[in-house]
Design a protein around this nucleic acid. Structure first.
Length: 951
RNA sequence: GCCCGAGUGGCGAAAUGGCAGACGCGACGGACUCAAAAUCCGUUGCCUGAAAGGGUGUGUGGGUUCGACUCCCACCUCGGGCACCA
């Protein structure tokens, strides 16, 4: 007899689930169930909006990978879907969509390895992902599924780039303004800082001055050059080991002329506004660290080569600055180096320059340096201090020069000890510091094993006009020093950031072309709006220039240069200074393309108004979905779910673009994503044989805690899913084996959404069984007939129902889907007992259970809803509401503890007073036996919950 | 090195000052079956005991409390981020 013959026809299994799921997916598509109405524009349906609260939920959109999805990818999508469906059932107008991040390195690298043109590749990958995701039953508004490679999309990416290009940061207002306003200020007499008057400048000089103020500008600066990828990279795309995030190729620092975004102008706002965001603290912390704001002072030290400016966070220790250290790349090094030191300095600089970042960070950490032969004057002591160069001072931070205070800085201390430089204490450490180091209390640093970094009484810190000695608070000493520096014109309080401006151009093919041409002065000029988009030209050879991964010197030639006909064109441009139209003239196009982050910097806005042809978004639509909800609210997406890997990339860049758009009045929200939630990762076990080869995880067997493949013992490791690890499980396998609803339920039941957890196909069946039992409680497996009765529900079952409603409602609201599922299982288990005794399910329970299941497993819930005779759409049926009267019963069970250990339980009427509970507890047989006649010393009653007797 | 986060049954986990282990997997026993699969019922932290019961138990050690997985201090292990940032 075959298996199918003995299985009841209407048993809920993978076969029936597949039928149900296909039916409802088709129906939802046909009936456009999940389309969200807009207040204005082409998708406007104002009548549907009235009286509903809006909710914009968003997933970090995927790049269309050729590998397709594995079971880890949809975790966040399922989470947001459950939440969105739950909110719909609570009356919200929910906008949920998913697009594709299809420009950029990941897609392009894949195209290169397969040899297929990225456009073709991207399209087929998107089609495959759409198919896989459709079978999940996600409640997405398909009209809003944009792709960053759509011309209708990147036309606006280019437009936004031009908004950034055509603005400058007004420090006084702390906000971006249109560049035309700066030009107007200059031409009406504002004098450019440090330059000659505007009117005396040539047209070229004027353009250059304006360009130097733009938020998107060309800069000849040190960049991260990655010959292995044939492109430069942003700081955020380079790993701590000095390699590319993608492909793990070596990255070199070199100077190149590149498009750069002035994100540093927004450093303070990007930092401060974190406080107003509902984000995980860990991500805020990562952004704070990345921005790296340091308060301190700039101090000028006089030298033979003129003033040398340093940045210090410890101006209060200035009296202890006994030498100075410059970065080997510092521009003043040549001038400072004396004849006697020339060869030593030159050798050191050559050595430092050739050492790659990797070498510099090798763990030896031994401080090295060379004396320049020159001296500077410490402004507070008036003493000469030697000037050294050392590679522990970085040109890219602060001023590239430091004042060394060995007594108060560990690095300076190590350097001073190695080269026998003087160390003077400026603070007396507390006695505990000396005790901790096992040495006698002494202000003589020659006895110190280490620098002292902390709060101590200031010593040796006085001159004629500045007196720090005796001060015990660092803040006071800092303030006094800063005041002194300013009064004497040798320094001032200052702030420095680790954040660098954003390198925005890539020497690749698969990205948005810049809407920029170069005029006869070789100055960048915006392509007129009417000519957007600047479409990416077709190239038969789209590969980046082939370079040796270690080639540090060759200048890259971007692929777009291969289309000379495209590069050299004629255009009617607008003069960037006067704004006047110019006659059609020859221009040269920018041949770099934008980085992969460009499209993701604003895609959430396009979801809102995807078909708008006259603006990137209608302001009314933006205000409705993104606008601030009260004073001080940043506005933005209501819930943004994605992985932690974008903490300082996408999540920083997009905040920056959004703030520019806000400053320019294009959006009403100050931040793109008000609430951020990081989902965990689904991880998996991988197995290796003794040669280190991975073996297929599905064929590994476990015996007594050991693992075997093909009779051989193998070792187990834990981590990502990956092709090379032979441990990939795909959603398709889960659909076939269990159905999408079971798969969804399993992923949500594994644990809290924000935690990583191991995948175990073996465990999935638990959720299948659960749905099977629910189904069987409502439908006769053999006949398919409904087993629901319209008779009254017994009170205990009704109570169980309302307790479940109450708990599930709260768990869903808090996105604790795992515990919501546990409560639904408990309810269903109680229902099963009732059905065993009575033969049918009360309708009130059947309907409420179906509704509560609907966000989690929408297909089977929709099917049951229909079979229950409901003709309304369960997606929008009001989520059940718990009756508070049914949440309490007549009696409660009170555990009684003796000395904190439970010794008895008693049943007491609900609402018993503390005294009544105390009397009941002391009268309890078990309690009396345990006390054995001893008089309790104290009785603690937790009202209505517990009694503890202290014996 | 610095900064976060986490350690609970064989496994995924629940409980955030008040009955530790809800719910699921697995395992064990049983029902159905010629048999198996599927499904259903029961048991299941560990030690001890025939059982009733007793003891013990949330990484380790201390502390606060009538009472601690939960709060505090120190340490250990794992995961993540930053890393010569002046």
């Amino acid at each position: 007899m075959s298996a199918s013959d003995s299985t009841p026809k209407e048993r809920y299994n993978a076969r029936l689930a597949a039928q149900i799921e296909a039916k409802w997916q088709d129906r939802w598509e046909l009936q456009r169930t999940f389309e969200a109405p807009n207040p204005a524009g082409p998708l406007a349906e104002p009548a549907k909006i009235a009286g509903r609260q809006k909710l914009f939920i968003l997933d970090m959109f995927p790049y269309p990978s050729g590998a397709g999805l594995h079971v880890g990818h949809p975790l966040g999508y399922i989470g947001t879907d459950v939440f969105g469906r739950f909110k719909r059932m609570n009356g919200f107008n929910v906008l949920h969509a998913l697009g594709y991040d299809s420009f950029g390195l990941p897609a392009e690298q894949h195209a290169i390895t397969t040899g297929v043109h990225p456009r073709e590749n991207t399209e087929s990958n998107i089609a495959n992902m759409r198919r896989q995701l459709r079978r999940l039953g996600l409640a997405h508004d398909a009209r809003r599924s944009v792709s960053t490679t759509d011309e209708g999309f990147y036309r606006w990416t280019q437009w936004i780039f031009l908004q950034v290009f055509n603005s400058w940061f007004d420090d006084e207002r702390g906000a971006a303004r249109p560049i035309a306003e700066l030009i107007a200020e200059f031409s009406s007499g504002k004098r450019p800082t440090g330059g000659k008057p505007w009117a005396e400048m040539s047209s070229r000089e004027q353009k250059q001055l304006v360009n130097d103020h733009r938020l998107a500008y060309l800069a000849d600066a040190p960049v991260n050059w990655c010959p292995g990828l044939g492109t430069i990279l942003a700081n955020e795309e380079v790993t701590a080991e000095g390699r590319s995030d993608i492909g793990n190729y070596p990255v070199f620092k070199r100077n190149m002329r590149q498009w750069t975004m002035r994100i540093t102008a927004y450093a303070d706002r990007l930092l401060n506004d974190l406080d107003r965001l509902d984000w995980p603290e860990s991500i805020k912390l990562m952004q704070r660290n990345w921005i790296g704001r340091s308060e301190g002072a700039r101090v000028r030290f006089a030298s033979s080569a003129g003033d040398i400016e340093v940045f210090t966070t410890r101006p209060d220790t200035l009296f202890g600055a006994t030498f100075m250290v410059l970065s080997p790349e510092h521009p003043l090094v040549d001038t400072l180096t004396t004849q006697a030191q020339r060869s030593a300095v030159s050798a050191y600089r050559t050595n430092a320059a050739s050492a790659s970042d990797t070498d510099r960070q090798s763990d030896t950490r031994e401080k090295t340096g060379v004396f320049t032969g020159s001296y500077a004057i410490n402004p507070v002591t008036g003493k000469e201090i030697p000037i050294w160069i050392a590679d522990y001072v970085l040109m890219g931070y602060g001023t590239g020069a430091i004042m060394a205070v060995p007594s108060g800085d560990e690095r300076d201390f190590a350097f001073a000890r190695k080269y026998d430089l003087p160390i003077i204490a400026t603070q007396m450490p507390p006695d505990s510091w000396f005790v901790g180091h096992g040495i006698a209390v002494s202000a003589d640093c020659t006895t110190w094993p280490d620098a002292f970094v902390g709060e101590g009484t200031y010593i040796n810190s006085r001159n004629d006009s500045l007196m720090l000695d005796g001060i015990t608070e660092m803040a006071v000493a800092k303030r006094r020093t800063n005041e002194w520096l300013e009064a004497h014109g040798v320094g001032n309080a200052a702030i420095t950031y680790k954040l660098r401006d954003w390198l925005f151009s890539r020497q690749r093919y698969w990205g948005e072309p810049f809407p920029i041409v170069y005029d006869e002065d070789e100055m960048p000029v915006a392509v007129p709006d009417a000519l957007l988009p600047v479409t990416l030209p077709e190239l038969s050879d789209f590969k980046p220039q082939a370079l040796d991964p270690n080639d540090e010197v060759t200048d890259p030639i971007p692929p777009l240069a291969r289309r000379a006909d495209w590069v050299h064109t004629e255009m009617e441009i607008v003069d960037p200074i006067t704004g006047a139209k110019r006659p059609v003239a020859k221009v040269r196009r920018e041949i770099n393309v934008m980085p992969q982050w460009a499209g993701s910097c604003w895609y959430e806005l396009r979801y809102l108004d995807p078909t708008n042809a006259s603006a990137f978004i209608d302001p009314e639509v933006e205000k409705y979905w993104m606008g601030p909800q009260h004073d001080g609210h940043t506005g933005g997406v209501d819930l943004y779910v994605g992985g932690v890997e974008h903490a300082v990339l996408h999540l920083l860049y997009s905040r920056f673009w959004h703030k520019v758009l806000c400053d320019l009045g294009h959006v009403s929200s100050e931040e793109p994503f008000h609430r951020l939630y990081n989902q965990g990762y689904i991880q998996a076990y991988a197995y290796r044989d003794e040669r280190g080869q991975t073996v297929p995880a599905t064929e590994v067997q476990e015996r007594d805690g050991k693992y075997f493949f093909d009779g051989q013992q193998v070792s187990r490791e834990y981590g990502k899913m990956g092709k090379s690890l032979k441990n990939i499980v795909t959603p398709d396998e889960m659909y076939d084996e269990f159905g999408a609803d079971t798969f969804r339920l399993y992923e949500m039941s594994m644990g809290p959404l924000d935690q990583s957890r191991p995948w175990n196909t073996r465990d999935v069946v638990g959720m299948q069984r659960f749905l099977q039992r629910v189904w069987r409680n409502l439908v006769d497996e053999d006949t398919g007939r409904l087993t629901v009765s319209d008779t009254d529900c017994p009170e205990d079952l009704l109570r169980a129902l309302h307790i479940a409603i109450d708990g599930v409602q709260r768990d869903m609201d808090g996105m604790r889907f795992n515990t919501a599922i546990a409560k639904l299982i408990e309810l269903n288990n109680a229902l099963t007992k009732h059905v065993e005794a009575n033969g049918s399910t009360p309708r009130v329970v059947a309907e409420a259970l179906t509704q509560m299941l609907s966000p989690l497993c929408p297909h089977v819930a929709s099917e049951l809803w229909e079979r229950l005779g409901r003709t309304d759409e369960i997606t929008y049926a009001r989520f059940p509401i718990a009756d508070p009267k049914l949440l309490v019963s007549d009696t409660v069970e009170i555990p009684v503890q003796i000395n904190g250990k439970v010794r008895s339980r008693l049943v007491a009427p609900t609402g018993s007073s503390d005294d009544q509970l105390k009397v009941l507890a002391l009268a309890d047989d078990k309690v009396r036996a345990a006390l054995a006649g001893a008089e309790p010393r104290k009785v603690i009653v937790v009202s209505g919950r517990l009694v503890n007797i202290v014996a």
